[in-house]
Design a protein around this nucleic acid. Structure first.
Length: 691
DNA sequence: ACGGCTGTAACT
DNA sequence: TAGTTACAG
């Protein structure tokens, strides 16, 4: 039954933390003598001094900009220090930055729901922490306010004299007659200042932050309605307003004005074509300009979903929440081969795919080791053109297949995927570069990525005991591979002159882990069967066979290898659960835990010191939040009938629509679809809370 | 024919 | 689902 949410749930406190010129800071920590000097991180030094990917603030003040070449930077700022990004396997290696980012996340994750937005950005939902603080130790009760907090920028607050400035910040934070939302924001200021200091102390990295809140607009049905002020966007906006090493707050009272004059392209998601279209097609230059357009009008131009979304963000409304996700959902390794460096032979492509696959596998291995997660899909992307003009700009298709753990497996599969895609790409041309025709392919970019990463049930499960390196199911020699004749035959390998390094990889032993399940009856549901993961050293010749095999399990009961085949369309659902299915089932049962703060219990390890930390203690707190939300829902949204909806006051109906965007309604082009598309139930308007 | 390398999400 | 496209840092 609908119950008004307690007041404490109305306003939330969201922070966006953004590391200052992060790669530069990482390099400066490694080489402290660079601190304070104009510095830039550059990759691929050979051509025009390489490309800048991060620029220190000292260098920026000399006019150095990202996406200058190294030589330009030298010209603009002769004393600039250029540091090269590490190179491994012939390509840029961002791992040091990744793990430096993890150091930061592991600190920030301790104070609330935390989302790793990118390698150097984090969102925090500090609502709980702010509420506790307000209840237990409100700012006005404190003897002194942190200096760092007093340096905050508060939008809408005049800051005239430098002297009185901190005083007025203090007053704002401690104001007794403040709105509850502002009080919470005041707590947020103090918490974020503290966090930033902690990050600095423990990692030596400085960062900037934006703090904003949201507010439930509907008090009536707020138990299932959360029309939020777009705090995530606002927090992000704010974090960029004062850099480096500063924090900015957006009180509710400042939102309107901030948005009204905000250039439309500064809004997240509007920095690209959509933003341009708003400008040129509708003459919209600021977010404020958007207000003049009706929802219907926007839907006519941009489709039902985007139109509604635009209408909402113009009013500061967004359903976005901080996701409790600390780990990436995919890993990828790629490289471009621009212009004259484009790859023109299969063996060269194979060489690079081998390099990329190695790196990918290395990262998959540490993900497995550190986070007990496995990826289940391997995808190959490439970009290409065809020499001698013709149809030069055709898209090179992406291809994916089940991911088999093991370097050589990934290398093999990646190469097979490539060849399958190449055939498709070339079509009538044929794939032979040696052919008489001059039309032949050139590869300008390659990447391999791993996705659909799922947790391995840890704890009581014995699975991890068997896990050391990799798992795989030998692929079928015939039907499985997209390019049968080429798939695993030694001749292809030998024909590649550049791939020697593959076999010299040392650190991770090449073994197979085969996932098997024991079941007396193969047609039974596998859910209840005993899942066993076994490893088979690859030295065993049987592993190198191309045929799916059966292995005995420890228990000796009948087992079946879970065979997965590349591009296998027909056999997929023939009683053979994929590893993903198994783990998904396993994970789903106790609690839907996939996107919850539970993720934070993984250890984030860094390459520097022992900063790996577990935040399980506070996952309970957050779990509580999740539970409250879930149980507050109280009933299945699908059970809400349209008639109930129709009886609501129009304003409320509108709020329903505006927040619960008519999601997943088929985007019938850009035409204004008839209306609710004959949805018989209000459920149509709901999206599950967590996607 | 240069911005390189990642990563997420929505759409179809 | 698999593949494409947009967006962002």
């Amino acid at each position: 039954m609908p119950v008004a949410r307690p007041e404490t749930s109305d306003a939330r406190v969201i922070a966006h933390v953004d590391m200052d010129c992060f790669y530069v800071q990482v390099e400066q920590r490694k080489q402290p003598e660079l601190r304070g000097l104009p510095t830039a991180v550059v990759q691929y030094n050979e051509w025009q001094g390489g490309a800048l990917i991060a620029v220190s603030y000292e260098a920026r003040s000399c006019g150095v900009k990202r996406s200058m070449r190294g030589e330009e930077a030298k010209a603009a700022c002769p004393e600039i220090q250029l540091v090269q990004v590490p190179v491994a396997r012939g390509k840029a290696d961002l791992n040091t930055y990744r793990s430096a980012g993890s150091e930061v996340v592991s600190i920030l994750a301790q104070s609330g729901k935390c989302e790793r937005a990118s390698i150097d950005e984090v969102y925090l939902d500090l609502t709980d922490a702010a509420e506790s603080m307000l209840a237990d130790a409100p700012p006005e009760s404190l003897e002194s306010i942190d200096e760092e907090a007093l340096k905050s920028h508060i939008l809408g607050m005049s800051r005239e004299d430098g002297d009185d400035f901190k005083e007025s910040v203090r007053d704002w934070i401690c104001r007794k007659d403040a709105d509850r939302r502002d009080k919470l924001l005041g707590c947020g200021i103090i918490i974020v200042a503290e966090l930033r200091k902690q990050v600095l102390k423990e990692t030596e990295f400085s960062c900037s932050a934006g703090i904003a809140h949201n507010k439930a607009r509907s008090y009536l049905f707020c138990m299932f309605l959360f029309p939020f002020i777009a705090s995530i966007m606002l927090a992000k906006l704010a974090s960029g307003m004062n850099k480096p090493a500063q924090q900015t707050v957006v009180p509710y009272s400042a939102v309107q004005e901030l948005l009204s004059s905000l250039p439309i392209k500064k809004m997240k998601q509007l920095g690209g074509k959509l933003g341009t279209s708003l400008q040129t097609d509708l003459g919209i230059d600021t977010v404020g300009d958007l207000l003049q357009f009706s929802e219907t009008k926007l839907q006519e131009h941009y489709g039902i979903n985007t139109g509604t979304w635009l209408w909402n963000i113009a009013r500061g409304i967004s359903g976005e929440e901080v996701q409790g996700r600390l780990l990436p959902k995919s890993h990828g390794s790629g490289k471009t081969f621009p212009g004259p460096r484009a790859l023109r032979s299969l063996s060269n492509v194979q060489h690079w795919l081998n390099q990329l696959s190695e790196e990918l596998y290395e990262r998959l291995s540490s993900d497995l080791e550190q986070n007990k997660r496995i990826a289940s899909t391997l995808t190959l992307h490439a970009s290409a053109f065809i020499s001698k003009d013709s149809d030069s700009h055709k898209k090179f298709p992406s291809k994916s297949c089940p991911l088999r753990y093991g370097v050589t497996k990934i290398q093999e599969d990646a190469f097979n995927l490539f060849q399958a895609a190449l055939r498709e790409y070339m079509g009538p041309f044929g794939t032979k570069p040696q052919g008489n025709k001059k039309e032949t392919w050139r590869i300008t970019g390659l990447s391999v990525s791993a996705s659909k990463i799922v947790d391995i049930p840890s704890g009581t499960s014995s699975i991890m005991r068997y896990f050391q390196g990799q798992s795989t199911i030998p692929s079928s020699s015939t039907s499985g591979c997209p390019q049968e004749h080429v798939a695993v035959t030694p001749s292809v390998s030998e024909s590649c002159s550049e791939q020697k390094s593959v076999e010299t990889r040392a650190s991770i032993p090449e073994e197979d882990i085969t996932i098997t399940y024991t079941s007396p009856d193969l047609d039974n549901s596998y859910r209840d069967s005993d899942i066993v993961l076994e490893k088979f050293p690859c030295q065993d010749a049987s592993c190198q066979s191309n045929e799916a095999k059966e292995f005995p399990t420890q228990s000796g009961t009948q087992t079946k290898t879970i065979g997965r085949k590349i591009n296998n369309s027909k056999e997929k659902n023939r009683g053979m659960p994929s590893i993903v299915d198994i783990f998904k089932n396993y994970n789903a049962s106790p609690q839907a835990r996939q996107e919850t703060q539970e993720d934070s219990t993984v250890s984030l390890t860094s390459n520097r010191g022992n900063l790996s930390s577990s935040t399980s203690h506070n996952s309970e707190v957050n779990q509580e939040v999740e539970d409250r939300r879930d149980t507050n829902w109280g009933y299945k949204v699908g059970e809400i009938d349209q008639s109930v909806f129709d009886e609501l006051p129009y304003e409320i109906q509108r709020e329903f629509r505006s927040f619960l965007r008519p999601n997943k309604r088929p985007n019938a082009g850009k035409s204004k679809s008839g209306d609710g598309s004959a949805s018989s139930s209000i459920a149509h308007y709901f999206q599950p809370l967590k996607r």
